[in-house]
Nucleic acid binder design. Structure first.
Lengths: 233, 233
DNA sequence: ACTCAATAATTGGTTAACCAGTTCCTAATG
DNA sequence: CATTAGGAACTGGTTAACCAATTATTGAGT
């Protein structure tokens, strides 16, 4: 297990090394948007790493929109100037795994916005889905069972109803990390589940009534404990 | 080129098919958190796809925290119940490329928050970096050159100074898409660049003075045109 | 019958060979 | 000399064989 972690760290470092090397290469050769990078084989030889590692690094930079691979043709630098390229790669290299506080802070930001948008834009279908999640949550809680999943699904239904695909995606990204951290640090273990039901109902009603201010307010109350945790601890 | 797009779409669909198949398998066999999935080879045979495709799909589900691969051991379902698993996979399958409006809306949300946090938490080093980006921007604008990159770097410096790694990451993710769309739809082509310099300076000063309210207000003014574009068009 | 070491089978990860297009150079032709 | 068909070389993507580590199985020894 320890070895596994070490291996992953090592791979992580080698990928960072490759990304930095690609950046240096772009600077050295003054590659501009649209220019072609050397082939994956040449890069792997030049950096003394496997071609698979090169592909991985390129895919990551492709994800951030800095490179573009065209099959049977080559890899090209995207329509971003060298300065932005350097700045962004520097940031990407510095990126670390988000701390729990950042996650919670971001979740609160997203939820307060999505709940407002949901109140403005929700369709009838959205209402149905939220209602289903809501009742599944209530049922489990009233049976005394653990209802973390159902809780989560209700919030994701709100994100979906917001009609903003970016925020929906971001919620999907941070949610599992939030869950695992919740379990790890035992957050919200003591909170009263019955109160949770009422808060969820209030949020749902505000969205149903298309009242964005109220929806945001109710969501804020729902996050009161989390808020404390985030800013007092 | 058209073929390329078709190929990508096809791959996209085959990946979705695999993800859905994995979900069905988990439901069919009632796999619970910690249970082991069939090996990649068996899955590839069962779904009649290449093992590479299976690996890709598993990696995606791993990114969303739903699965976990342990080398030389197997792939395991994460500590998330079947219900949440189903809901999240459904959402992931439905995920579409974000529309421009969603991107802008999300960017505004993130920037208004990060600028506030930056005013509260910025270090001296953060100030230096922002100052450098600021002056590079001013210089280019005063020379009548295009300064989209420098503009962007200033905003990324703010995100970094916010001290929230999640928001920083999200800003990095949406920024390149914003840029390409800006270029595509010719947003902000007519805006007066000189005004942009003053607005940037005002934002910087508010952060330097640790005045979060003012910083947010100045950022809001900076985004006035974008705001209009996002909510009026 | 039980233990536990030795081995065989299975796992995810990695590497190298292969594939189908693309690109670029060559040389034959008008 | 210019043009263009032909092909060689190169491209990213794909596949299959390989690897080291883990896990399951076996069977000898007590």
């Amino acid at each position: 297990m320890k070895l596994d972690i070490l291996t992953k760290t090592e791979n992580f470092d080698v990928q960072k090394h490759i990304i930095a090397s690609i950046r240096d290469l772009i600077n050295l050769k003054n590659l501009e948007p649209g220019d072609k990078l050397p082939s994956e084989r040449m890069l792997s030889e030049r950096f003394s790493v496997s071609r698979g590692n090169v592909r991985e690094a390129i895919q990551k930079l492709e994800f951030y929109g800095l490179l573009e691979s065209i099959p049977q043709s080559g890899t090209f630098v995207a329509n971003i100037g060298v300065i932005a390229m350097n700045g962004m790669i520097e940031d990407i290299l510095r990126l670390e795994a988000p701390d729990f506080k950042s996650l919670v802070e971001t979740r609160i930001l997203l939820e307060l916005k999505t709940v407002r948008l949901a109140a403005l834009r929700r369709t009838e279908d959205d209402l149905v889905e939220m209602k289903v999640a809501l009742e599944a949550f209530s049922k489990k809680v009233r049976n005394g069972e653990d209802a973390v999943q159902e809780d989560l699904l209700f919030h994701l239904a709100i994100a979906k109803a917001s009609g903003n695909s970016s925020m929906n995606t971001f919620m999907l990204i941070i949610t599992p990390e939030i869950i695992t951290n919740f379990a790890k640090y035992h957050v919200c273990d003591t909170s009263n589940a019955e109160v949770g039901i009422e808060e969820h109902n209030a949020i749902f009603k505000a969205i149903e009534d298309k009242n964005p201010q109220l929806a945001k307010k109710k969501m804020k109350e729902h996050f009161k404990e989390l808020y404390k945790y985030c800013y007092n601890v």
